[in-house]
């Protein structure tokens, strides 16, 4: 067997292992607590086929997209400034790390008070989760650009625009994609937590409604759809990330 087929087989075995543990948990806890993998997958298929599901998925997707755009724009801007100016970077880094490890959920009431109930609150909550990792990664990427690259661009008489497109972007891209990957995970977490409370639309709301009616299968099916979607997007970003890092 080649290396790649062994790898694919190993991954399949891990997935099979997860399914077996899930089935065992189902057998131990019963239908009232955990639905079986088969039943959950069936229900997820039903949901995906029903027209009532898609507005909720679109709502979550839209909130995630807006939050990501805000987080990335602010993160790239602030990160570049902090990375370019050494003193501000040194002052800001521990503050950023401290903010990163705070339980931001405690701030959710403030967000609700400021933005009211609805899409804006979810977007804001997602963005404050995602913006810090993007900032930290961008800052380090800009800080660690090889000074020889910048000197070369000056020697070659490149303008600021050319320096940006030919030097800065290619040199920082791998780290920025890493930041985007971490930022994506946290933004999604923020948006979903936002939807768990005080929301009338979205995947988080579907989970909460299913819990309210003790509909375990639906709850787990929505969770499964979310998890699979999240893992697929994260894997794609991971793949791009690895390729960019190998290229440099």
């Amino acid at each position: 067997m080649t290396r790649n087929t062994t790898y694919a087989l190993d991954i399949a075995l891990v997935i099979a292992g997860i399914l077996v543990i899930w089935q065992l948990l189902h057998m131990g806890a019963g239908d009232v607590a955990i639905s079986s993998p088969a039943a959950t997958a069936l229900r997820a298929g039903e949901l995906l086929a029903s027209p009532g599901f898609w507005p909720h998925a679109a709502e979550t997707g839209l909130a995630l997209l807006y939050a990501l755009i805000i987080a990335v724009l602010i993160g790239l801007g602030v990160g570049t400034l902090l990375g370019a100016h050494r003193l501000s970077g040194a002052v800001a880094e521990p503050i950023l790390v401290a903010l990163y490890s705070l339980p931001k959920i405690t701030l959710y009431p403030v967000i609700l008070l400021v933005f009211g109930l609805g899409l804006e609150a979810k977007v804001a909550f997602g963005a404050i989760h995602g913006v810090i990792p993007v900032t930290i990664f961008t800052m380090n990427a800009v800080k660690n650009i090889n000074p020889v690259f910048l000197r070369t661009s000056r020697v070659l008489g490149m303008g600021p625009m050319q320096t940006a497109t030919h030097i800065l972007v290619p040199a920082t891209l791998p780290e920025i994609v890493s930041g985007l990957r971490v930022g994506f995970s946290l933004t999604l977490l923020g948006v979903i937590i936002g939807e768990l409370f005080a929301s009338h639309r979205g995947m988080g709301f579907l989970v909460m409604r299913a819990i309210g009616t003790h509909d375990v299968v639906t709850m787990m099916a929505v969770t499964l759809i979310l998890a699979v979607a999240a893992v697929l997007i994260a894997s794609t970003l991971l793949y791009i990330d690895n390729r960019l890092h190998r290229r440099v």
Binding site: L189, I192, L196, I211, V216, M219, A230, I233, S235
Partner: peptide
């Protein structure tokens, strides 16, 4: 990819 799964949704469960 573990941290991409928003598993707070498991909490009510």
């Amino acid at each position: 990819t573990y941290y991409a799964v928003p598993f707070f949704v498991f909490y009510p469960l």
